[in-house]
Every structure is written in C-alpha cells, then in structure tokens.
C-alpha cells in the first residue's frame, strides 16, 4: 500500500514510505518533525498549514505527500536559523502581529510570497493577499502593519 516519497524540506531531504493518503502537512509534522506548520481546519480555509511548495504558497493540508514527492518545500523553520530572524519575523515581533501564534507560521509564509511578488504592497493589497489566512486574535491590523514594515526593511517602500 505504501509509496516511496522524497521531499526536500528546508534544504534537507526527507524520504520514506508513506500511505498514499497521507497529507503533506502530516508528512511535514510527523515524518520530518517540523511542527511549526499547523492544522487549523479541514476545508482549506484557514491557512495555518501554509507552506511554500516549489516556491509557491500552498495549503499543505490539501496536498498529498506523494503529490509533493520530488518537490521542494519551505516551512517557517526554514525561514531563518531562529537567531538572525527574517525581516518578516522581526516585523511581526515589532508590530505585535501575533497573539497566540498558531496562525503565525502560515501568515508569515504567505506574506513572504506576497513580498516576493510585490515588494511594496499597499495595506489594501496586503489584506487581499492574506485573505486565505485566518487569524482569530489580532483582527489582522497589526499583521498588515508588520508586513508593511517588513516590506520597508527588505527594500520596498
């Protein structure tokens, strides 16, 4: 029943035999032990499982691990070494862009893609780019401010 899977996550190759039905988010959390990526819903709405799959954000609860075999995945743990923070991490911290922290990894991964595609987004554009990521704590306002600040720090304006 099992199928071989090999996925490069944050630069490290993880391989193994998994059931074809195993979701990518479970592979990341269980097989790779990277629990920064969360499961928040079961209908692809909430965005807490957002990772970058071959460079583009994806909801890893709506991808089978086997579909991602041969692909490259980046998760929150790959964004920085945890000491020298990514500008987005720094900005989320500075601007109080998180409270309970559960949506934060997905929010940051989605924001990272936004800033790659649009280095100087307006607040309106940031709000639209984050429409697939739900936060229940912050009311989004400080998240938007954090993305704005990170854009500035990364050379946008």
């Amino acid at each position: 029943m099992s199928v071989p899977v090999e996925i490069t996550i944050n630069g490290r190759v993880f391989s193994g035999e998994v059931e074809p039905r195993q979701l990518l988010v479970h592979f990341i959390r269980e097989n790779a032990g990277l629990t920064g990526t969360k499961v928040g819903c079961d209908t692809s709405q909430c965005g807490t499982c957002t990772v970058q799959l071959d460079g583009a954000i994806a909801k890893s609860c709506t991808v089978l691990a086997v579909q991602a075999s041969g692909s490259t995945v980046n998760t929150i743990e790959g964004l920085s070494d945890g000491v020298d923070l990514h500008p987005l991490q720094e900005a989320f911290w500075n601007k109080h862009g998180l409270q309970c922290g559960f949506c934060t990894p997905g929010m940051i991964m989605a924001s990272e893609e936004l800033l790659r595609n649009n280095p100087s987004p307006s607040r309106e554009e940031i709000r639209h780019a984050l429409e697939g990521n739900i936060c229940r704590c912050t009311g989004y306002q400080n998240i938007v401010s954090a993305v704005e600040e990170a854009a500035g720090a990364m050379g946008g304006s």
């Binding site: 629990t35 929150i76 964004l79 922290g101 990894p105």
Partner: peptide, 21 residues
C-alpha cells in the same frame, strides 16, 4: 511602555510546542 513581547521569538520561528505537537 509597549515593549516587544517576550514570548514571540518561539512563536514566529515555529518552535513553540502546542498540545498536538
């Protein structure tokens, strides 16, 4: 004063363990 939160570094790096972790 509105100092940055002490708890944030573990949260913004995905290192904080929740129950399901």
């Amino acid at each position: 004063s509105g100092i940055r939160r002490r708890e944030d570094p573990r949260l913004i790096t995905g290192k904080a363990p929740y129950t399901d972790d």
